[in-house]
Structures are given as C-alpha cells and as structure tokens.
Simulated scan of single mutants.
Amino acid sequence: MIDNDLRMSGSDSPGEPAAHVGFLLIPDFAMLPYVSVIEPLRAANRLSGRTLYRWSHVSIDGEPTPASNGVQIQTDFRVGTDEHFDYVFVCAGGNPTLFKHPATFAWLRQLARRGVKIGGVSGGPYILARASLLAGYRFTIHWEHAPAIVEEYPDLDLRRSLYEVDRDRLTSGGGTAPLDMMHAIIAREHGTDLAMAVSEWFLQTHVREGTGSQRMPLRERLGIAHAPLLRVISRMEQSVEKPVSRGELARVAKVSLRHLERLFRQHLGCSLGEHYLALRLDRARELVRQSSLSVLEIALACGFASASHFSRSYRARFGQAPRTERLHETTAKRH
C-alpha cells in the first residue's frame, strides 16, 4: 500500500532537475526485482520526453556486483559516497542474513538522516532491518525471507503484501512486485496518465494494489476447491510455531476428525499429521537456508520440542541434517 503523504522528488516543471535514484547492489542480488525498479524509470523518461529520473549504482567496494544469475553490474560509487541521491533502493537476494557489513549499515542510516527515501526490494528489506531503518514503519519482504525476519525482528511491522510505501520507506517483495510499486510512485510524482503509459509499455494489463498477496491462493496453489479443507490448511499454515490439535482442526472444518482425515487422504494423498509435519519442516528449511538461527531455535520456531526430534524428522524428509544443509548452502554461496 502507499501513504498519502509520499513526498515528491520529481516535478513537472521543465527546469526541475531529475530525481537521482541510487541502486545499492548486494552480492547475489535478485535480478528481476532490480530490473522491475529501474526499467519503469527508463520508460517514464522516454514516454514523457523528459529526463525525470537518472540513476547510479553503488556496491560495497566500488567493484562490479554479481547478481544471483551470474550477471555482473558495473557500479559508479562505493558505499560511503557523498553523492546526492533522492532515492536509494537496496537490492538483495540469496540469503541476506549472511550480509554483515557495518559500513553499509552506517551509510544507509546517514542517508536516512539526510532525508533520502530508502527502499528495499526482494531481500533488500532485510538489509534495512539490519541497519535499524524499519522500526516504526510498515514494510514487506519476499515471502521466502519472511519467516527469518519475523524470528530475528519480531517487533517490526511486517506485512505480507506486494509492496509498502510508508513515508520515506519503500519496500516490495520479489519478482515483478516492484513494477506495481513503481506505478504507484510514478503516479504520485508525475500523474496517473504517465504511470498508466509506463505500465502499458511493459504489457502490464493489471496493476496490482500494494495490499495484494505475494502468493497464490491456497485453492490455486494446491489445486483443490474443498472449502472446509482449505480452512484447515490455512489454519495450519498460520500455526506452525504452536501446532493446533487435530480436534481443533476438525472443529475449524466443522466435520468429524475421522471425516477430516478422509478429506486429507482424498485430496492430498496423505494424513492430516503428515501434511502438518511437512508444512512445519518446509518452514524449518526456509529458516535453515535464510536465517542465522541455531538448530534449536529453528526447531522451537517450527513446533518441535527438541533439536534431536527435529533433526531426525528433517533428515527423513530432506535426506540430510539441518546443520549439513546449512553448511552446504553457506559453502555454495561463498563460491
């Protein structure tokens, strides 16, 4: 969603300088969300016939930065530059919990004190949280990183939306969600007509509201249309840390426990308990890959009473212990 008090950095006055947008590229950043921010700026310039925006790239050392797909982006500045920016978007992907660079966090805080609008896309909001720039703000992040950021920063106001613009903080999930965010920003700065033209330029026939969900509805994701069963699965997904009893789930479905078990077998090919365990282990795997929590902390966050029970269950589902998978993930990212 977008606030009504978003300040304008551009202007329709021909003599007004272009808004300078900085892209802070964190190694292993996700390419698609980055492109979904920068391309609307280019289109706005072309379709308006004026230079409304200009942009520069920043890296932690001033060297080219690799995206997660291996493409390297040349950078213009290094972290700490005194260059004037109106916006700075932090682009990150991979596992942003591994990024620990005090100079970057300090520079972002300095920019915020200067009144620069600070944004983050995909995993970028995690970097903003590490820099202590999200306290008191609504924000969102790619759903893959959401469990980890909730565990590390439980007091922050995370929304499971496509994008959030709260005063001078602009955050969006991954994929093409930034296209929708940039539509809203361009509309506020330079009018709805230009924003619509930009969206049509990219064949964006439907501009999504910021409050839209990042993930497909359960009905589409699982390919089932049984309403009581969908209610139960939704409740299960919302209750990973403190699993709900089978009796309570039957009450949610308004059927007997025996009938609910039959529904799981019929529609999902497994028992209620097997599906619930799989949900909890899938969430655990996200935390193993996307957080720095200990194995015991992950076990407790996913409803397991002990690290040993968790590790056995994890190995049975994924073929390796959580510590082993984390070691492989960390080693792969370093290479």
Rank of each mutant, 00 (worst) to 15 (best):
Ala225Trp: 11
His190Thr: 13
Leu272Cys: 09
Ala187Tyr: 04
Thr176Gln: 05
Leu279Ala: 11
Ser56Val: 05
Thr192Gly: 04
Gly94Pro: 05
Ser132Thr: 02
Ala131Gly: 01
Ser291Cys: 03
Leu6Asp: 02
Asp282Glu: 15
Phe89His: 07
Pro14Asp: 04
Leu287Met: 10
Leu293Met: 07
Ala67Pro: 11
Arg317Met: 12
Gly174Val: 07
Ser122Phe: 12
Leu133Gly: 01
Leu229Met: 05
Arg138Pro: 00
Glu241Ala: 14
Asp5Gln: 13
Ser122Asn: 15
Phe89Gln: 03
Met8Ile: 15
Leu279Gly: 03
Lys117Val: 15
Val71Lys: 12
Val244Gly: 01
Phe105Val: 04
Pro33Gly: 03
Ile185Arg: 03
Glu325Val: 08
Gln214Lys: 01
Tyr87Ala: 01
Gly210Met: 08
Arg78Tyr: 01
Glu144Phe: 14
Thr330Gln: 15
Asn4Gly: 06
Gly93Lys: 05
Gly269Asn: 15
Ala278Arg: 08
Arg46Lys: 14
Phe77Ser: 04
Leu327Val: 10
Ala112Gly: 09
Phe318Tyr: 14
Ile233Met: 07
Arg54Leu: 09
Glu209Asn: 10
Arg334Met: 13
Gly94Glu: 01
Gly49Thr: 05
Val244Cys: 00
Pro40Trp: 06
Lys254Arg: 15
Leu134Ser: 06
Asp3Tyr: 10
Gly210Val: 06
Ala301Tyr: 00
Glu261Arg: 12
Pro14Ala: 12
His190Tyr: 11
Ser11Ala: 11
Asn95Cys: 03
Val198Cys: 04
Leu25Ser: 08
Asn69Ala: 14
Ala148Arg: 08
Gly22Trp: 03
Leu272Lys: 05
Gly115Ser: 04
Gly123Asp: 08
Pro27Tyr: 03
Cys270Tyr: 08
Leu179Tyr: 07
Met182Ala: 05
Leu222Glu: 04
Arg219Gln: 11
Ser11Gln: 11
Val21Gln: 03
